[in-house]
Design a protein around this nucleic acid. Structure first.
Length: 654
RNA sequence: GCCGACCUGGCUCAAUUGGCAGAGCAGCUGACUUGUAAUCAGCAGGUUACCGGUUCGAGUCCGGUGGUCGGCUCCA
């Protein structure tokens, strides 16, 4: 047989060889590093015997699949340790994940940090025991019998759900046997650097109707130094956590008596949001949006028409009692139907379209108590919301323009490279969640896919992530804990113009249904602020910084000069503070640095005499004396750089 | 909503088996008037999240409520 390797070279063998043997034949080092193999594109075990011509790639810890095999083995070591310490624990599942692995157990007691330390100790003992890991297969009936004898009811359920013809494999290391498709390493001794991170609850099979199991998260590396680095990175990430930093920097706070999920935005946070909002609304207006101001509540009837009452009543703040009151109101969870009413307030001609209505919209959603998180998931928030009503011919261009708008916003706040795109689609299985109209789903999804491909956007597709009324393009970001959330969204809606009986009169004098695009430009201000805090670790870009320049007089003699400078700079829209306290200059600098203020100006006698500022910038440190006029120009230029649409226009006119 | 952890001055943290709630920073007052990351001194600050229980005695033990955090589920 002939084996073709990744680099195109070939090896020839007379008889069948295991992947590991072939790796050893290539080099001893490769065999040592090998975690799994890839045969004709399929990830396999190192034990897999190859006996025909194939393309083979040896996977090490550097390959994602190799790393997964490695960490999957770590999860088995975790399971073995748990079984040794708590024989009553039942095994559920234990895969590798992006930054490590987990294993779910059904335990009769809760685990605390001491337990975690004990389990980790036992895991290290298992590594030291250098147990060989063996793979074996069993016919279905025998496999079932084996797991039932072991009392592993969850494993039995997994086997029962496998297709009739499925290969059922097990892995054994010492006294521990686990149902598992693999692949796995050859011996427990390879897992030299492991660490248990945390415990958590998780529903069996991810379904909240099932029992909640105990999940243990951990991570593993093939080098101790890499593990240490990983732990340092986790610590560093925690320092950027918006929920901690945002409070330290006095951007927001919360109060028990106000309530959960209701953050109080403090002056610095409010300044950032105001700055952002002015910018967003300027950009939107420049691109043909009009603004509306609609009520924060409505009669339940409105939400019944839209379908939100059926889908999300539990998640709405309802005012009144449906049983007793003639009229029940609800705080609005979204803006759509309000703007539709404005659309419907007069007859629309095809000549009027597209109509683009924007609103910085306060929204209220009664999220479950466990869902709230800092500024990322809250019960009241402000969405940079808009709805575009257009003809079928216009929808493609309108959608593309929205993508450009969103990308310009991301460029302005500097996060273009921190996001991923998700094409969120319908799931035909979830009949209770989605409007039952397969034709419309296929049509709109195809329209959207065509647009995305035209733009050349890199995106992943996700089934079952669409809104109930149509597919979405979601812009996703990760917080410091690695958790992904939707930052911005653009949605194609095929259902609501029908429900609200929205029309326009076309050229042929016929009434027709407009297409509707729902979109957020900069998303929800609270969430975007959270993301910015984490992205910049509190050191906001100049144009967003609540204070852009802090004047630090060296003695009281310079205070008057500083106050005059402040007045002048305010005239140019520059946000300036003065530290008038009788403190030493080093102390004032230290505090201002901790506040991450972009520019500090040390003002002594020299500066006050020749109308200058001794600038200390956040990035460069001490820059020496600069004439006031030069400094104003520098800040003004930096401040204006965010107006990307204006730049587009200037480019075009050239 | 579910699983688990946590909650002590504004912040960071102490307080032995249940035995007088304390420190640093921040704040206030005063002195100092200083040239690029912490000047000195004094003062004040607490129903230990809240409610209840056990106890001679609770920050500490038990129960409940609220909030925060990490997950799970959900996210129009």
């Amino acid at each position: 047989m002939i084996i073709t390797l990744k680099d195109g070279s070939t090896k020839e063998y007379a008889s069948g060889m295991s992947v590991l043997d072939i790796a050893a034949d290539i080099s001893e080092g490769l065999a040592r590093a090998a975690c799994a193999g890839e045969v004709n594109g399929e990830v396999v075990d190192l034990r897999t015997v190859v006996d025909e011509d194939v393309e083979l790639n040896i996977l090490t810890f550097r390959d994602q699949a190799g790393m997964d095999a490695f960490r999957h083995t770590a999860s088995h070591i975790l399971a073995q340790a748990v079984k040794r310490l708590y024989p009553g624990a039942k095994l559920a599942i234990g895969p590798a994940i992006e930054l490590g692995f987990y294993y779910d157990f059904d335990m009769d007691r809760a685990l605390d940090n001491k337990d975690l330390a004990a389990i980790e100790k036992e895991m290290n003992a298992i590594v030291k025991e250098k147990l060989d890991i063996e793979r074996f297969e069993l016919p279905r009936a025998e496999a079932l019998k084996l797991v039932e004898e072991m009392g592993e009811s969850y494993k039995a359920e997994l086997i029962s759900d496998l297709p009739e013809d499925a290969v059922i494999s097990f892995y054994k290391q010492g006294d521990f046997v686990d149902l598992c498709a693999g692949p796995h390493l050859m011996n427990t001794k390879e897992v030299k650097a492991l660490k248990l991170i945390s415990t958590a609850g998780a529903y069996w099979r991810g379904n909240e109707k099932n029992k909640m199991l105990s999940r243990i998260y951990g991570t593993a590396y093939n080098k101790k130094s890499d593990l240490k680095e990983h732990m340092v990175r986790l610590e560093e990430a925690k320092k950027r956590d918006h929920n901690k930093l945002g409070r330290e920097l006095e951007i927001f706070t919360t109060s028990e008596v106000v309530g959960q999920g209701l953050p109080l935005i403090m002056p610095k946070g409010a300044k950032i949001i105001q700055t952002l909002q002015r910018y967003v609304e300027d950009e939107e207006e420049a691109r043909g949006y009009e603004f509306t101001r609609t009520p924060v509540m409505a009669k339940s009837d409105l939400f019944k028409i839209s379908g939100h009452w059926d889908h999300y009543k539990d998640g709405m703040f309802v005012l009144g009692d449906e049983e007793k009151d003639d009229e029940v109101y609800a705080l609005r969870p979204m803006t759509c139907p309000f703007q539709y009413m404005i659309y419907k307030a007069k007859q629309r001609s095809y000549r009027d379209l597209p109509v683009r209505y924007s609103e910085t919209s306060p929204l209220f959603r009664n999220e479950s108590s466990g869902e709230m998180h800092g500024l990322i998931r809250v019960r009241q928030f402000h969405l940079a919301d808009a709805h575009i009503m257009c003809t079928p011919e216009q929808v493609e261009q309108e959608f593309k323009d929205v993508v450009v708008l969103v990308q310009d916003m991301m460029q302005a706040i500097g996060i273009v490279n921190d996001v991923t795109y998700r094409f969120s689609k319908w799931d035909p299985e979830k009949t209770d969640k989605y409007i039952d109209n397969p034709d419309a789903w296929h049509t709109t999804q195809n329209v959207m896919r065509k647009i995305l491909n035209d733009i050349g956007l890199e995106y992943e597709e996700a089934d079952g992530e669409a809104a109930f009324y149509g597919p979405k393009l979601d812009v996703q970001f990760r917080n410091v804990h690695g958790k992904e959330d939707t930052l911005f969204t653009i949605q194609l809606d095929f259902a609501l113009s029908e429900r609200f009986d929205m029309t326009y009169v076309d050229k042929d004098n016929q009434k027709k249904r407009p297409y509707i695009i729902h979109r957020s430009s900069i998303g929800c201000y609270e969430r975007t602020l959270a993301m910015l805090i984490e992205k910049y670790a509190g050191a906001f870009p100049l144009w967003l910084a609540p204070t852009q320049l802090k004047l630090l007089p060296i003695t009281d003699n310079q205070i008057e000069y500083c106050r005059n400078i402040k007045k002048t700079l305010r005239g140019y829209g520059i946000r300036v503070d003065i530290d008038e306290r009788a403190e030493k200059i080093g102390y004032k600098i230290r505090e201002a640095r901790m506040e991450r203020i972009p520019y500090l100006a040390i003002v002594g006698q020299e500066e006050s005499e020749n109308n200058s500022l001794a600038i200390r910038s956040r990035e460069k440190g001490d820059e020496g004396s600069i004439a006031l006029d030069d400094f104003i120009k520098r800040i003004a230029d930096e401040n204006a750089s965010k107006y990307i649409y204006h730049q587009h226009m200037i480019e075009e006119s050239k």
